[in-house]
């Protein structure tokens, strides 16, 4: 462990903002930033998801109201955003895990684009599925 020596009081350190500040940065940093964002987004989704499920304890009508809302096009779009988050975080996670074990380090950019191409196809398929499902 290293102790930090701060003699002058002033240090330019951006804290967590440095995760997201991609100005002038390249692919790896964008992937990193997006990974953090989608990760936070998925945690947020999980919380909302549990809150929504808790509506079940408040009776059938509250739940049915929500289901009606969930079938609106705007809400379906949010589902696609969720899929994007899941796909990006999951697929980039595969890349980070592989690279993190020392596999394919030199080809991390190629790996990124291959996985993202797979992700884009899956995202389009899922969007099609979401919007074309019969509104039962």
């Amino acid at each position: 462990m290293v102790q930090e020596r701060q003699t002058y009081g002033l240090i330019r350190r951006k804290g967590a903002w440095s995760w997201l500040d991609v100005r002038g940065r390249r692919l790896g940093a964008w992937a990193f930033a997006l990974n953090r964002l989608t990760g936070l987004g998925l945690v947020l989704y999980l919380v909302i998801h549990l809150l929504v499920l808790s509506l079940l304890t408040q009776g059938e009508s509250r739940w049915n109201d929500f289901i009606a809302l969930a079938k609106s096009p705007a809400f379906l779009f949010l589902d696609v955003v969720l899929f994007f988050g899941l796909l990006f975080h999951g697929l980039n996670g595969i890349r980070v895990a592989l690279v993190g074990m020392g596999l394919g380090v030199e080809r991390h950019k190629t790996l990124f684009w291959v996985l993202m191409t797979i992700g884009a196809v899956l995202l389009l398929l899922s969007a099609w599925k979401v919007f074309s499902s019969p509104a039962t």
């Binding site: 940065r25 390249r26 790896g28 940093a29 990193f32 980070v96 993190g100």
Partner: peptide, 9 residues
């Protein structure tokens, strides 16, 4: 490290 690769860039 979380593989942002900026160091190598």
């Amino acid at each position: 490290c979380h593989a942002a690769f900026e160091c190598s860039e």
